[in-house]
């Protein structure tokens, strides 16, 4: 067993993948918890898909697709956030439209891009095994920014997530922090894109913190547990995918989904035996 593991992680691409997995788990566990508590799951789905527009445009004009994804996800996250605040319930529709339009833009520009295009699919479905040392660096940068963001503003973020009106009446920086949270969500989407692809980003954002919040009652504990669960899902998924020769991203998400349903059932049973 240990020999197999040692062998698997003796490859450099597996080491990079594992390192990327840890960084992604850190970012998505923390931001994902805030996304779930602030009911921004729809928005983050929209951000993820709209980001593909940036991937397409960047590759067409010969820039780094990651840069395109970053710009597009920041743009769409702030736009959707503003729409959400102004339109409330009706923002649903607008998020849906941006979701699809971003995707369509990406597909058109990708198809216009001359030459070899297969790697552009990796932004949709993930390519954790192709993560480079360079990728690790910017991922680490975003992970550091995330940790700083939450460490510095934890109390305010908690207050705003729980009761935005009260936070406003207390003159907490509600607007600034909401925009910052949207920006961090956009960056999280791009980091997670590298691992599981834009289409499955939502799963990585929501599943670990959803499981954690079934069993823990404090936001920071939920964040920590979500990070831990992310690391477990990604590293176990990597191993399974290596041994079975199945696509890593899909294995990771399936594993997470499976544990989610198990946790759901366990939680149910626990509730029943309590009563």
């Amino acid at each position: 067993m240990f020999n197999t593991l040692a062998e698997i992680f003796s490859y450099e691409f597996m080491q990079n993948a594992l390192l990327a997995g840890v960084l992604v788990s850190l970012v998505s566990g923390i931001i994902g918890t805030l996304v779930v508590l602030n009911r921004m799951v729809g928005i983050s789905g929209g951000i993820a898909h709209a980001a593909y527009g940036g991937v397409g445009i960047a590759s067409y004009f010969g820039f780094d697709p990651v840069l395109g994804a970053v710009l597009f996800s920041l743009l769409s996250s702030v736009t959707m956030g503003v729409a959400h605040r102004k339109l409330r319930e009706r923002s649903d529709t607008m998020i849906g439209v941006m979701w699809a339009v971003g995707m369509a833009t990406g597909i058109i520009f990708v198809s216009l891009t001359p030459g070899y295009r297969a790697n552009l699919m990796s932004y949709l479905f993930g390519s954790i095994l192709a993560v480079s040392k360079e990728d690790i660096w910017w991922m680490a940068g975003i992970a550091l920014a995330t940790v700083l963001f939450v460490a510095l503003f934890y109390r305010q973020l908690l207050a705003i997530s729980f009761d935005e009106e009260f936070a406003t009446v207390r003159n907490l920086p509600v607007t600034v922090l909401s925009v910052l949270l949207l920006i961090m969500t956009g960056l999280t989407v791009v980091v997670a894109m590298r691992v599981v692809g834009l289409i499955m980003v939502i799963a990585l954002l929501t599943i670990p913190s959803a499981i954690a919040s079934m069993f823990f009652k404090e936001m920071r504990v939920i964040m920590l547990v979500a990070v831990g669960l992310g690391v477990v899902f990604i590293s176990a998924g990597l191993v399974i995918s290596f041994l079975s020769n199945l696509p890593a991203a899909a294995v990771i998400i399936l594993l997470a989904g499976l544990v989610y349903f198990l946790a759901f059932v366990i939680k149910r049973i626990l509730l029943k035996t309590k009563i």
Binding site: F153, Y154, R155, L158, D163, R170
Partner: peptide
């Protein structure tokens, strides 16, 4: 923690 929100101050930095 709910009641503690009543003591959060305006401005930044929740590490206080």
């Amino acid at each position: 923690d709910v009641v503690r929100m009543g003591r959060e101050k305006a401005g930044f930095f929740g590490v206080r």
